[in-house]
Nucleic acid binder design. Sequence first.
DNA 1: AGCGCTCTCTGAACCGGTTCAGTAGATATA
DNA 2: TATATCTACTGAACCGGTTCAGAGAGCGCT
Lengths: 340, 340
Amino acid sequence: MTVTINDVAQAAGVSKGAVSYALNGQPGVSDDTRERILKVARELGWTPNLRAKSLSSAKAFAVGLVVARDPRLLGTDPFFPAFIAGIETTLVEHEYALVLTVAASADAEEMGYRKLAADSRVDGVILTDMRVDDSRIALLKSLKIPAVTLNRPETSSPFPAVCMDDTEGIAAAVEHLVSLGHTRIGHVGGPQSYIHGRSRRLAWQNAMSKAGLEASSFIEADFTAAGGLAATAELLRSAQRPTAIIYANDLMATAGQSYAQSLGLTVPDDLSITGYDDTELATYLNPPLTTVPADPLLWGRVAAQQLLSLLGGAPAADVYLPSPKLVVRASTGPVPQHAE
Amino acid sequence: MTVTINDVAQAAGVSKGAVSYALNGQPGVSDDTRERILKVARELGWTPNLRAKSLSSAKAFAVGLVVARDPRLLGTDPFFPAFIAGIETTLVEHEYALVLTVAASADAEEMGYRKLAADSRVDGVILTDMRVDDSRIALLKSLKIPAVTLNRPETSSPFPAVCMDDTEGIAAAVEHLVSLGHTRIGHVGGPQSYIHGRSRRLAWQNAMSKAGLEASSFIEADFTAAGGLAATAELLRSAQRPTAIIYANDLMATAGQSYAQSLGLTVPDDLSITGYDDTELATYLNPPLTTVPADPLLWGRVAAQQLLSLLGGAPAADVYLPSPKLVVRASTGPVPQHAE
DNA sequence: AGCGCTCTCTGAACCGGTTCAGTAGATATA
DNA sequence: TATATCTACTGAACCGGTTCAGAGAGCGCT
């Protein structure tokens, strides 16, 4: 049926071992013999059997990604598909595959990693959505699975991180709004249990105090449209209603913008709005959204590269990606006169 | 190190073969011996080595999904993440894994399937985004990979399909608009090379002629926000400007709605709009979007079930999922007076 | 010539399961 | 009692690679 290394050995008149050495570019065969073996293998149309390779070399030639999200909300996050696509661009070049697991709960997430480990499905994993005190680090350490994290967790981690600073973009958003005369700039953040939820809030806080402003209007939301709406409603109800809101992602910003408009407010005349992610839709909203582009494609590509080089035995060193720059569109404008 | 079937055999005082039979619930060992072997295996903490199983049983215990999309646009489609989550809910129950491939081009897509086949990474695949004359069917047939398709392709296909009728929802949208007095109802469709792009257009056409209306305002777009905007602009420029537009997905509808609003039109007073997908954001737009919920989670779950039972040797039979029903929100309203 | 060394290659073990042919013993059949 | 049948199990081959110990051949050096 399919041609095996045995067939090649027989056809070339050498032993299995010699064929293995020749095909893997290892020493142990002369150049002449190597050429001959390769030629025979080519003629016979031999292709390596990944399963056999996996068994004997104890490698899976695959990396894993466990996505812990409410499945119903997973579709709302534009980050993952693009991130996965980025991972793939690297993997295909190295004949690796991506094994994807979706987990609905924290338990399921842990089980996901445990299954990947127990079945040796993967040689390493990429950790996204790092949490402030992330139990996965200890888990993976105990499971002895190499990993790469997106951004460096606060917990001490033995795994290399691929870092993309999101504070600069948020700070730029604050500065941009301040330059437009805003002083009451609110922030609708993501869950503060996530390091990116927290770092964006801190970035907003720091930029605010740097500008001599009080960072008082903060609402912790959950990155969903529903959460964005609720947080916006709360901010707009408050006595010192903000004239601008910085959202931790585009989805919440869009929901907030729509909500504000439904109240009769005009964006940006009555309320300025910024997002984070720069989803495709952001450009096509009315008004188009001022936002900070995440670059999930690049992030995925580099994270996968990082993981593969870690698997190849390279020392674990963090990689820093360029900080994304604020993209100014029409959802931000001068502070309203009456609010001065 | 890890405990193998050999260790169990030795500890139980039987042969490897007996252990294998016992662990797999196969005949060939007495109940007493089986019990004893299972007990020993449990005590020793034996877990099957998937790689060895894969090699000897020639199965991968994984299914594949090749997503062919421009990676940069992948994030805009809320379908995939939820669909994948649905697949996962089935797979975890059966100890199967999902191998995901992202392909940017048609060539890459074919390569994706070929690689999965050559490496025997998967035991079967799920085909989404069926095209009118879909080359993947012949490809998979030649590669001898079992498959399940989303909806039945027009090409004759040996693979079972999981069908979810989208025509009913579109027809309902037309009827809904007709009942509101609209007569000029346009359609912004997806690429007509996709069967779901085409079937939605046909559903619109049929419903229109059923209502005695002319289905003349059709623009073929590409499911992206940019495409939705361009198509909307074209429709609104036309002499017989439609008073309502049915979009083939929410993303285009949202972009269209924003564009219309940016022209100073009011939705739905000047223009009614419907989408397709019922993304989370649809509820939180201003106005909230009338749309047809796709149920990617269910679709994924059933497709995976279908594939697994196919792999288990069940005969290939199509499955029909309930047709999604139109969800009416505030983006549709009575036809404008002056347009009567 | 004798020794050691390197280079090339072989044969077999090994990874951890599955599966099949064969056998011993118990049971049924005539 | 002799024979056929069945059950329960063993031993070995097998899946398709990797890897290691060791055998010869060829070479240089003293």
